[in-house]
Every structure is written in C-alpha cells, then in structure tokens.
C-alpha cells in the first residue's frame, strides 16, 4: 500500500511537470500543413468532378445501350403468338335456345308493328314451310298462267357436236330454245 501510494505520487509529480508543455514549432510546418490540405482539397474536388463525369458517361452509355436494345428488339423477326382457341360462347347457346322456343307470330302481327311483323314473317318463310303460302304477295303474276314447256334433252346429239378446236380448248356448244 505504501509502495502504491509512492507510485501514484511519483506519477502525479511527473504529470504535473508536463501539464502545460509547449514548444513552438518551426514556421515551415504551418505552410506545409496548409499546403497539404489545399492539395487534398483540390484532389477531392477533382475526384468529385471525375466521379460526376464517370456517372454522366455511365448514364449516357446506359441510355445509348437502352436505345440499341430497343432497336434490336424491333428488328427481331415476328414470333408466332399462339392464339387462344375460340371458346364456346354462352350467347350462342342462348340463341339456340331461343330458336327452339316456339315463335309467337300472332302476337307480333296483331298488337305492335304490323310491317315489322310482316317482315319477320317473310324471314320466317324461309324456315317455316307452312307459312310459304300465307306470305306470298298478291301482286305477283301467276307463273302458272304461262305455259312452260319442258326442256328437250339433246343428249343424243351431243357426241356429234363436241369437237376439238385448234387452240385445244374443248367447247361444248349449247342451244337454248325458248318456247313462248
């Protein structure tokens, strides 16, 4: 304990002697320090400028690269894109259902639109064989009043009439006789 106290005392004595130590440095050190700092500052600025240039260059290169990539993509041959198979539409099914429903012709004729109903009945004529006679207009000339002669078959004469022309085109002459 006695020795430890002596150590502490000794340390304190030494420390007190160096408490306000000061030695004036040579003048040239100050110049060297601030010159080095100015040099570092310039280097730092150059570094910042250089980094900026590099970043700009990289950006320009990137933009150019992107444009080239876009061009390449444009020039690539078209790829056959598989088209999805047509899906059966439920609407069609509904139409079919509607077709299967009985057509209420009488209600349309009598109540709402007679002309439209007539048109509708005309279109229905094509489908409904029973309505053909009902839909026939009155002003049509009766075809039955004309006498239509049956077409005479010349099948026996055909082999003699057929001949080969110079241009090697086979022509079949036909005679149409209309009897009034």
């Amino acid at each position: 304990m006695q020795k430890k106290m002596k150590n502490e005392e000794f340390d304190h004595y030494i420390q007190s002697q160096f408490a306000d130590e000061a030695i004036t440095p040579p003048q040239q050190i100050e110049g060297a320090i601030f010159a080095a700092m100015a040099k570092n500052s310039r280097r730092k600025k150059l570094g910042v400028i250089g980094t900026g240039i590099l970043v700009l260059g990289a950006l320009a290169y990137g933009v150019n690269g992107t444009m080239n990539t876009t061009r390449v993509v444009t020039e690539t041959p078209p790829v056959a894109v598989p088209v999805a198979a047509p899906v059966a539409m439920p609407v069609t099914l509904e139409v079919l259902d509607q077709e299967e429903q009985p057509i209420q012709k009488q209600e349309v004729h009598d109540d709402v639109l007679p002309a439209a109903a007539a048109a509708a009945s005309a279109s229905i004529v094509l489908e409904d064989s029973d309505a053909v006679e009902n839909a026939r207009p009155d002003n049509l000339e009766a075809v039955a009043s004309r006498s239509v002669q049956p077409v005479v078959s010349n099948s026996q004469e055909l082999p003699a009439i057929l001949h080969e022309t110079d241009s090697e085109v086979w022509v079949m002459p036909a005679t149409v006789r209309v009897k009034e």
Binding site: E21, A22, I23, T24, I29, E30, F34
Partner: peptide
C-alpha cells in the same frame, strides 16, 4: 474556413508539437 483553421493552429500548435517531440 481556412482563416479559422489557422487561428486554431496558432493557438494549439505549441502544445501539439511538445507532445509530438515527447
């Protein structure tokens, strides 16, 4: 501020140099 840096240097450089020499 380099003027402030020089003021700090002028004030503490003697102490710093003494420590460096020690």
């Amino acid at each position: 501020d380099s003027n402030a840096q020089r003021q700090v240097y002028a004030r503490y450089s003697s102490m710093m140099f003494a420590v460096a020499i020690r």
